[in-house]
Design a protein around this nucleic acid. Structure first.
Lengths: 294, 294
DNA sequence: CTGAAAGCGCTAACAG
DNA sequence: CTGTTAGCGCTTTCAG
């Protein structure tokens, strides 16, 4: 049997070997550089490891659990990002013996976890703003919707406490999107107790805040200081340059994929939890003197 | 047999039904908003149509054909973007009866094709620059590497011809990336016959050109006019606002996915070729007076 | 060491 | 209308 052009049937092989040769990635949605940055890392490592990558966005759907359960049948393991599916589902997948890696998400059972340091950086960044003389800083974001946002909020609060300032009660709610960030910033800028600085939970919110500042005729950073999070590509192109916190997006995804593949290949048995470092990128929007952007 | 918690085995089902319940997407890479914008549209329509989405980036690999051939066994149809795999492979997939949709790529056989209008817009945009008094315009991009870039170059050349200007001989080569755009712009700005305008094949190249202009101490648009392509989110945040051409990224991807699903479901038999319209977004970098960005 | 046979878990065709 | 059986194409085991 030396038939040239013979193509093995993937489904038959998968059935016989009980092995799909594919991994799954579950994310909330794909808008913005954050998720796509992580996706890049996952994609690279998946093909590197000889596995296909099946992706699914939950888009806040209520039936996300059902979709992911269905997905789980066609893959050898799953990477779950943020607040996409219930803890129950994740526990269930593990119970069925499916390797699961959690990304930017609280741990469940024995699943491997990949996170980035958020709390200490948020505290340091907030202290930095306070050091610039800001005593009224608004936090724009939505902690309940995202574990990462929750940690940034915690660090934000901690800095106020450490500096002996009144502890902020609640954030100005905004999803991680530019339009919502603009709306939230407009609201807070119109309030009687207008803050002198905005701590935005990510760079897209910060972009919206820039727009809002322009609409209010406020100069950044003299009238209003702004900080972001993620250090997306545009951060250095904003005028003035956006002070923000860089996360190694590609590395996060790559690491998650590698951990998953190790579990699938049986290379590793004990679960690991990794926290990747972040880096505060000081530019001008926080009030620091303009300098060569890096 | 009313066992609760029964999970059908996807591989067995796929084998029995000769139907994978999945579609594939082949792209060169995921960097930048263009491909991820298209991906968003594909992802949304795939889950909408009840199909899983398997993605693969070729990253300029020489073995891209092999990878995609392997992928083709696990899906019911494939969307192929740009210059990722050989025409031979595409023809081969069709021969095996696999539905194929081509995206931003010349047609092969009976495959459905989704493209955006490029040539006429490029000609109009070039004429616009000429209308601003520019007689020395450099095209930065790499036509051979991308069918879209090739069309933009063709329109660029056509405009020179139509306006009775010397016809440009060749483009300044740069991949669709910011760093390469900056390098290409630096080269051309250092040349003795420095152009007064840069027609960049996409917005990321244009961003690199902005950086290069700053490094040369050139003011945009008075010393150097710049245009881009795609209208990515940051375009309006650049200072000055970037004049560019908007493509409906999400729609492109969504349409491709729908066409593929129609073929898979057998809803449609005759092949279609769609050209989606683009829109020139005039901001300030071309030399037009600053105005409210939209 | 080579070749036949028994699943893998499902669907679809077929009897009863 | 319900219950049984024969594949789907591969891997793996077991005889020969």
């Amino acid at each position: 049997m030396r038939l040239v052009g013979y193509r093995p049937n993937a489904a038959a092989r998968a059935l016989a070997m009980q092995h799909q040769g594919a991994i799954g990635l579950v994310f909330p949605h794909l808008s913005g550089p954050y998720y796509t940055g992580v996706l890049q890392g996952v994609e690279a490592q998946a093909t590197e490891g000889g596995a296909s990558l099946v992706i699914i966005g939950t888009h806040g759907r209520t039936q996300a659990d059902r979709l992911v359960r269905e997905l789980s049948g066609r893959v050898d393991g799953v990477i779950v990002m943020g607040r996409t599916v219930s803890d129950d589902l994740i526990a269930d997948l593990q119970r069925r013996g499916l390797p699961v890696v959690l990304l930017a998400r609280p741990s469940v059972g024995t699943a491997d976890v990949v996170r980035t340091e958020s709390r200490a950086s948020a505290e340091a960044l907030t202290s930095h703003l306070i050091g610039h003389g800001h005593y009224q800083i608004a936090f724009i974001g939505d902690p309940p919707s995202s574990p990462d946002a929750a940690e940034r909020w915690a660090g934000f609060v901690a800095a106020h406490r450490a500096e002996g300032l009144p502890v902020p009660i609640h954030p100005v709610v905004s999803a991680f999107r530019e339009v919502e960030g603009r709306a939230a910033a407009l609201t807070v800028l119109a309030s009687p107790s207008r803050p002198s600085a905005l701590f935005c939970a990510n760079d897209e919110i910060a972009m919206g805040a820039y727009t809002a500042a322009v609409e209010f005729g406020l100069a950044i950073p003299s009238d209003l200081a702004i900080t972001g999070w993620d250090d997306i590509a545009v951060a250095r192109f904003l005028a003035p340059g956006l002070t923000t916190v860089r996360q190694p997006l590609g590395q996060i995804g790559a690491l998650a994929a590698r951990l998953l593949l190790e579990r699938i290949n049986g290379t590793r048995r004990k679960s690991v939890s990794t926290v990747l470092p972040t880096e505060i990128m000081i530019r001008s929007s926080c009030g620091c003197a303009s300098q060569e952007d890096s």
